[in-house]
Simulated assay, not measured.
Amino acid sequence: MYLIGFIQTAKPLVLINPEMFREVTGLFNWINKFLNSSDFELDTPVTLENLTASLNKDVPVQINFNGYAVALLLGNDEVVQQHTERFVYTDKFELLKLADD
């Protein structure tokens, strides 16, 4: 199993809105949809081969975004859980209701 989510780069122990995938190809497809070329430009293209090689290490993969204090964190489920303390799902919050309070 593979896990991906967002982290704050200053507080990388909380995984925000994690998604789980059974296969590397599902994870790869999610990344490709999120990192579309009209919104993001990576120095090194993400390929299935590079992703598979990175996921075989015992550390999570972190993809930083220039100018933003968030990053993607991904890896084998066990590896990501060892490097984070908790998961937070922001889609569970009624953000518009909280803004009115």
Score class of each variant (00 low, 15 high):
residue 1 M to N: 03
residue 1 M to G: 04
residue 1 M to Q: 11
residue 2 Y to H: 05
residue 3 L to M: 09
residue 3 L to K: 08
residue 4 I to G: 02
residue 4 I to M: 05
residue 5 G to T: 03
residue 6 F to I: 07
residue 6 F to M: 12
residue 8 Q to I: 12
residue 8 Q to K: 13
residue 9 T to I: 15
residue 10 A to P: 03
residue 12 P to W: 06
residue 13 L to H: 15
residue 14 V to D: 05
residue 15 L to V: 04
residue 15 L to D: 03
residue 16 I to T: 08
residue 17 N to L: 04
residue 17 N to P: 08
residue 18 P to K: 00
residue 18 P to E: 05
residue 18 P to C: 10
residue 19 E to F: 08
residue 19 E to C: 05
residue 19 E to V: 08
residue 20 M to S: 06
residue 22 R to F: 14
residue 23 E to C: 10
residue 24 V to C: 03
residue 25 T to Y: 11
residue 25 T to W: 14
residue 26 G to Q: 04
residue 26 G to C: 06
residue 27 L to I: 05
residue 28 F to L: 02
residue 28 F to R: 02
residue 29 N to V: 12
residue 30 W to A: 06
residue 31 I to S: 06
residue 33 K to R: 15
residue 33 K to D: 14
residue 34 F to G: 09
residue 34 F to N: 07
residue 35 L to E: 04
residue 35 L to C: 09
residue 36 N to D: 14
residue 36 N to C: 15
residue 36 N to L: 11
residue 37 S to I: 03
residue 37 S to P: 06
residue 41 E to Y: 14
residue 41 E to L: 10
residue 44 T to Y: 15
residue 44 T to K: 12
residue 44 T to E: 14
residue 45 P to A: 10
residue 45 P to F: 07
residue 46 V to S: 04
residue 49 E to G: 04
residue 51 L to A: 10
residue 51 L to E: 06
residue 52 T to P: 00
residue 53 A to I: 12
residue 53 A to S: 07
residue 53 A to E: 15
residue 53 A to Y: 07
residue 53 A to H: 13
residue 54 S to P: 03
residue 55 L to Y: 07
residue 55 L to N: 00
residue 57 K to F: 11
residue 58 D to A: 15
residue 58 D to H: 12
residue 59 V to W: 08
residue 60 P to H: 01
residue 61 V to A: 09
residue 62 Q to R: 15
residue 62 Q to Y: 08
residue 62 Q to H: 13
residue 63 I to P: 02
residue 63 I to V: 14
residue 63 I to H: 04
residue 64 N to K: 08
residue 65 F to R: 01
residue 66 N to G: 06
residue 66 N to R: 13
residue 67 G to Y: 11
residue 67 G to T: 03
residue 67 G to K: 11
residue 68 Y to I: 13
residue 69 A to H: 06
residue 70 V to G: 00
residue 70 V to R: 06
residue 73 L to W: 05
residue 73 L to M: 15
residue 73 L to K: 03
residue 73 L to A: 01
residue 74 L to G: 00
residue 74 L to W: 02
residue 74 L to Q: 00
residue 75 G to F: 08
residue 75 G to D: 03
residue 75 G to I: 05
residue 76 N to L: 08
residue 76 N to S: 01
residue 78 E to R: 07
residue 79 V to K: 07
residue 79 V to M: 03
residue 79 V to Q: 02
residue 81 Q to V: 07
residue 81 Q to G: 01
residue 82 Q to H: 12
residue 82 Q to K: 12
residue 82 Q to A: 09
residue 83 H to G: 07
residue 83 H to S: 14
residue 83 H to P: 02
residue 83 H to N: 08
residue 86 R to W: 04
residue 87 F to I: 02
residue 87 F to T: 04
residue 88 V to F: 11
residue 89 Y to C: 00
residue 89 Y to F: 11
residue 91 D to I: 05
residue 92 K to V: 14
residue 92 K to F: 08
residue 94 E to R: 13
residue 94 E to F: 11
residue 95 L to M: 15
residue 95 L to Q: 13
residue 97 K to N: 05
residue 97 K to D: 10
residue 99 A to R: 12
residue 101 D to E: 10
residue 101 D to T: 12
residue 101 D to V: 13
residue 101 D to P: 10
